[in-house]
Simulated assay, not measured.
Amino acid sequence: MNKRFYSFRKLTGLSFLFMLFLLGTYSTTQAQEKGNFFGGDRATRFGFKGGANVSQLYIDQVDGNSERSKWGWHAGIFVKAPVSDYFAFQPELLYSNAGTKVSYQGSNLLGVRPGEVRYNLNYVQLPLLAAITLGPLSVQFGPYGSYLIDANIRNLQIDDPLEPTGGIGLDESDFERFDYGLAGGVAMDIKGFQLGVRYNYGLREISDKGLAGRLVNNSKNSVAQIYLGIAF
Score class of each variant (00 low, 15 high):
residue 51 G to P: 06
residue 112 V to Y: 09
residue 6 Y to E: 12
residue 1 M to R: 08
residue 41 D to R: 02
residue 224 A to F: 08
residue 77 I to K: 09
residue 159 D to W: 04
residue 187 A to M: 11
residue 165 T to N: 14
residue 193 F to V: 12
residue 42 R to L: 14
residue 190 I to Y: 09
residue 4 R to C: 01
residue 211 L to A: 12
residue 110 L to N: 13
residue 202 G to I: 00
residue 68 R to P: 04
residue 3 K to F: 10
residue 36 N to F: 00
residue 88 A to Y: 03
residue 107 S to R: 01
residue 24 G to P: 02
residue 219 S to W: 03
residue 61 Q to M: 13
residue 3 K to I: 07
residue 36 N to S: 09
residue 69 S to F: 00
residue 149 I to H: 03
residue 221 N to D: 12
residue 222 S to L: 02
residue 75 A to R: 03
residue 82 P to H: 05
residue 104 Y to Q: 06
residue 10 K to W: 01
residue 144 Y to I: 00
residue 161 P to N: 09
residue 35 G to W: 10
residue 23 L to M: 11
residue 152 N to S: 12
residue 75 A to L: 13
residue 106 G to L: 11
residue 67 E to G: 07
residue 49 K to H: 09
residue 94 L to N: 02
residue 121 L to K: 06
residue 152 N to F: 03
residue 99 G to D: 04
residue 202 G to E: 05
residue 228 L to I: 14
residue 142 G to K: 05
residue 126 L to S: 04
residue 46 F to S: 08
residue 172 E to D: 13
residue 34 K to Q: 14
residue 58 Y to F: 15
residue 117 V to D: 00
residue 74 H to P: 04
residue 1 M to Y: 08
residue 17 L to H: 01
residue 47 G to E: 02
residue 175 F to C: 08
residue 35 G to M: 09
residue 76 G to K: 12
residue 155 N to D: 14
residue 34 K to S: 15
residue 154 R to Q: 06
residue 143 P to R: 08
residue 201 Y to F: 13
residue 206 I to M: 09
residue 111 G to H: 11
residue 18 F to D: 02
residue 174 D to T: 02
residue 176 E to T: 00
residue 140 Q to L: 10
residue 136 P to T: 11
residue 152 N to C: 00
residue 123 Y to R: 07
residue 138 S to H: 02
residue 14 L to Y: 13
residue 1 M to A: 13
residue 56 Q to N: 11
residue 21 F to L: 14
residue 22 L to F: 12
residue 61 Q to S: 10
residue 124 V to Q: 00
residue 132 I to N: 04
residue 79 V to K: 07
residue 170 L to Q: 03
residue 164 P to V: 05
residue 196 G to E: 08
residue 26 Y to D: 09
residue 29 T to P: 00
residue 191 K to A: 13
residue 104 Y to W: 14
residue 163 E to Q: 13
residue 92 E to Y: 10
residue 159 D to C: 01
residue 119 Y to L: 07
residue 181 G to N: 05
residue 125 Q to G: 02
residue 164 P to Y: 06
residue 108 N to D: 15
residue 61 Q to P: 02
residue 69 S to R: 00
residue 153 I to K: 04
residue 130 A to L: 15
residue 64 G to N: 12
residue 35 G to Y: 08
residue 64 G to L: 14
residue 92 E to C: 08
residue 208 D to V: 04
residue 57 L to K: 01
residue 228 L to S: 03
residue 43 A to D: 15
residue 139 V to R: 08
residue 22 L to H: 00
residue 164 P to N: 08
residue 210 G to Q: 09
residue 127 P to W: 03
residue 83 V to I: 15
residue 190 I to D: 02
residue 135 G to C: 07
residue 146 S to T: 01
residue 124 V to F: 11
residue 50 G to L: 10
residue 209 K to D: 12
residue 167 G to S: 15
residue 194 Q to Y: 04
residue 9 R to I: 12
residue 86 Y to C: 05
residue 160 D to T: 05
residue 226 I to G: 12
residue 71 W to T: 12
residue 190 I to K: 06
residue 165 T to A: 11
residue 96 S to N: 10
